[in-house]
Design a protein around this nucleic acid. Sequence first.
RNA 1: GUGGCUGUAGCUCAGUUGGUUAGAGCGCCUGGUUGUGGUCCAGGAGGCCGGGGGUUCAAAUCCCCUCAGCCACCCCA
Length: 414
Amino acid sequence: MAKLQPVRGTRDLIGEDARAHLHVIDAARATAGTYGYRPIETPVFEFTEVFQRTLGETSDIVTKEMYTFQDKGGDSLTLRPEGTAGIARAVLSGGLQNELPLKWCYAGPMFRHERPQKGRLRQFHQIGVELIGVAEPIGDVEVIALAAATLDALGVLPATTLELNTLGDNESRGAYREALVSYLEQFRDRLSEDSKQRLARNPLRILDSKNNDDRAVIADAPSFSDYLTPDAQTFFDAVRGGLDDLGIAYQINPRLVRGLDYYCHTAFEFTTDQLGAQGTVLAGGRYDGLIEMMGGQPTPGVGWAAGIERLAMLIGPTSTGPRPISVIGIGPAGEKAALKVAQDLRQTGFTIELNYRGGLKRGLRRADKIGAAVAVFLGEDELARDGATVRNLDDGSQTDVSLAELKDHLAEYR
RNA sequence: GUGGCUGUAGCUCAGUUGGUUAGAGCGCCUGGUUGUGGUCCAGGAGGCCGGGGGUUCAAAUCCCCUCAGCCACCCCA
């Protein structure tokens, strides 16, 4: 047991776990499709610079959580810690800036070397959407509406709260940052160790601290809304107005900040209190500077990503599809016939379980275990009359059916 | 990366102050005669007591290290 454990922070998806996982992806893709977002797949690893330059040299993800390695050619590669940077890279690689707006949805594994706990894995999976090339606030509104629709399709929307904030434009943020730092410097010795670090690296982060001493200091800190430029304020008002028009409820959270450097203007999160400390289920925002940061023409973008594992924990049991039909061959001739009958039924769209070994008793026992609705027997008796015996496993009733009418007889179980 | 809790059969868990062949329930397999499941009865398989080291005549039990999970911090999806 200790010998072959999965790598720390990774896990196998089996049975209901696998089903729930795929269900989340299917629902997300279907919902995104109705908004006109098309699937995109990018590689799970990229050149390290793709993440280093864009996520911010000081972010925790870049400084201590990336799986970075050298490949045999000597290039530094990194397993993607998030999806947006790779997609932005794909825009540039593919010369797609002439085809704006781009509307994409994706799903796949992400990798971060963190201490695992509930809702936090080292290989985890995200679904996400990106809207690239739309600078107008209506883009933010659409993307948030799509987020809500996705959560709704999964039945988890009522369990979440939408928190909304603006990070403003560069001008607003620069001015506020300065004001915040000079305020916090006065109380430096009252801040937690973590926050002292953050003061230099990422002061906005302190606003989000859970430390009580920090909170006391933050309570009287300057408010970001006082530093928003008129443009940034107008933008934010438009986003709020759009959400109001669509009847999407949200709470303004002035302390909502982002871990990644490429965000500006709108920041939002759908959170839940049902997942312990890892309460963020879906998070996103606007990243107008990203593509330029990678060396392209300035190109606006908005998007979000959601944790599939976290969503899977919130949804109820998923449907298992139609109950199977068990086809049981008895004796060498029966087994031969069963293989053919099973094949034929499968091609007609029935869900068929074939018994591989053992006789009728064993076949029935297995049929019961897998929850089959009916069993079809094919033995010498049946072959002699060119038919099959169909047993209803719920009430035990049996009927003789000719092979020709078998499909019709089973029709209700398809 | 920091702190706390946990780790005995496939699963959920017992295991007395360290003392012989480590137990239960569920699950699994076989049988209860020839072609009838679920129930019932009988039997069976399955444990490096997470791993390594130490203390002891003797360790699942005590000590140290280590690995993993969970919870919180941190971080974030």
